[in-house]
Design a binder for these strands. Structure first.
Length: 464
RNA sequence: GCGCUCAUCGUCUAGCCUGGUCUAGGACACCGCCCUUUCACGGCGGCGACGGGGGUUCGAAUCCCCCUGGGCGUACCA
């Protein structure tokens, strides 16, 4: 174990999305690579917006992606006592104060300031107030330094400096007594001994506010690393408008977790010209040094390509287990019919997602294949009756349903009929699969078995 | 508006720190050819970028400045 302690701290106000997943991945990889500790923390201080469903959804997605944490999940909602203690400490030390300003007043002041082109920060009305009005709701604000500057050496962006007069007297405790994000994140990262805060660069602006709080609380300041955002095709922050953003939606669309991981890691991180990485390779090769500084656009096509790659190269038994679930979801009964592993092997090079594979596998399990009308019109014409008859006859003679034997049988058929495969194959294919595009016909016959193949051919042949 | 930040093919990126080996490399997508019983896979090839302007230098994608453009933030959200 090294000293490195990192964390992923999602707020349970929705599913785990693409951006969060990448942040989690980077934290996970770094922890594994440095043999540090990966902590999962649920940021649920906003009681109104946090839900158990979201917590479960996030946990499920983390598990599906294979990001196992070493500690947690830790729930902030269970640590309110600690936060209260720290807030009391700050107040008694004069580092935080009660603010009795009403929200509508603040909104007005903010708008007014903005209209005049001034900074929309808290005007400090209650900053030096010493009276404590009875029965008046209040929040607790952090007393932020008014001058000087705060800077930190970001591990991906370099030195970043803020003038302290940009900082606001942040609310750290709401009227209802619950603490807010910028405060709890400091208390938690400090008390959980997080040594590196690795998160999205939308948090850069929060960092100086948090640093002054670390100092006020007497905590050591951790390292920070801010990774660039993932944008949609229109270069704005990725959102539902750009299509699926939920990790689990990708599973439902037939993506493999290793494809998503591989895609996500290449968004912002690189290792020379390499494109394909297993989790093991990532753990070995990942480094903060190779994280880019600019935002990147989510490209579904490349993810699809990676998914196709992992389907192509995946173990057919595992894929067969998965395929079963996707076929069930598509309402296709697989308990009867050909062996799923054999089916998978004929489809691995043809399917880019498991959903596509399930669809492509449909014909294998159909009692009566649904024949595409235009394919039938072209290849299942009456003049094909004798050829199909010959195919059925010769297939019946076959003892073994392996592709080589089937190939030899077709050689014989071609010899006997004097027809080339181009004149026979398409009709057989359509009769067997209902479509003009399918795995090789020898493969299909082999997987279907002689009996079932002949049954299908017979049915078509008789109807001609 | 203000603050922070970013800037290489349409997209993801290598190269930038340690200027010359860059007529800028790889990948996705797209186009063409080959392979082929269909569809795919695969192979080969093509298209395609250093945002603009100044500097520094014998020499700049690489260093400096300005401009432009983009992103993020500016909550009793996280």
């Amino acid at each position: 174990m090294s000293e490195l302690r990192v964390r992923f701290a999602p707020s349970p106000t929705g599913h785990l999305h693409i951006g969060g997943a990448r942040t989690a991945l980077f934290n996970y990889l770094l922890a594994r690579k440095e043999q540090g500790t990966f902590v999962l923390r649920i940021e649920d201080t906003d009681v109104a917006r946090s839900t158990q469903e979201s917590v479960d959804a996030i946990l499920d997605a983390m598990k599906w992606l294979g990001f196992t944490c070493d500690e947690g999940p830790v729930y902030q909602s269970e640590r309110f006592e600690l936060y209260r203690e720290k807030i009391d400490q700050l107040v008694s030390e004069g580092k935080a104060y009660r603010c009795y300003c009403r929200q509508d007043e603040l909104d007005q002041k903010r708008e007014a300031a903005q209209a005049k082109g001034l900074k929309p920060k808290y005007d400090g009305t209650c900053r030096d107030r010493s009276d404590h009005p009875e029965n008046t709701p209040y929040v607790i604000r952090f007393r932020s330094p008014l001058s000087g500057e705060t800077s930190f050496n970001d591990r991906v962006k370099g030195v970043i400096t803020f003038s302290n007069d940009e900082l606001d007297d942040l609310i750290i405790q709401r009227t209802d007594g619950t603490p807010t994000y910028n405060f709890v994140v400091v208390v938690d990262d400090a008390t959980m001994n997080i040594t590196l805060v690795l998160r999205g660069d939308d948090h850069i602006n929060n960092t100086p506010r948090q640093i002054v709080m670390y100092k006020a609380l007497g905590y050591p300041v951790p390292d920070f690393a801010h990774v660039p955002m993932i944008l949609g095709s229109d270069k704005t922050r990725l959102s539902k408008r750009h299509g699926a953003t939920s990790v689990m939606a990708y599973r439902d669309m037939g993506y493999l977790p290793e494809a998503l991981v591989n895609y996500l890691v290449r968004l912002g991180w690189s290792h020379g010209d390499d494109e394909i990485f297993s989790m093991e390779e990532l753990i070995e090769k990942f480094s903060l040094d190779n994280i880019g500084r600019s935002a990147s656009v989510f490209n579904p096509d490349k993810l699809l390509w990676l998914n196709a790659h992992y389907i192509k190269t995946g173990h057919s038994q595992r894929l067969a287990d998965l395929l079963k679930e996707y076929m069930q979801a598509a309402g296709i009964e697989t308990s009867k019919g050909p062996n799923l592993v054999a089916v998978v092997k004929t489809l691995q090079e043809r399917a880019r997602t498991m959903v596509e594979m399930a669809e492509a596998a449909r014909f294998y399990f159909a009692d009566t294949v649904e024949v595409d009308p235009s394919a039938a019109e072209k290849f299942l014409t009456a003049d094909k009756k004798p050829v199909l008859g010959a195919v059925i006859r010769h297939l019946h003679l076959l003892k073994q349903a392996d592709e080589v034997s089937i190939g030899k049988t077709f050689d014989t058929i071609m010899e006997e009929t004097g027809l080339k495969l181009g004149k026979i194959g398409p009709s057989v294919r359509v009769a067997l699969t209902g479509s003009t595009s399918s795995p090789g016909i020898y493969e299909v016959i082999s997987v279907l078995g002689i009996e079932e193949s002949c049954r299908r051919l017979q049915r078509i042949q008789e109807s001609l």
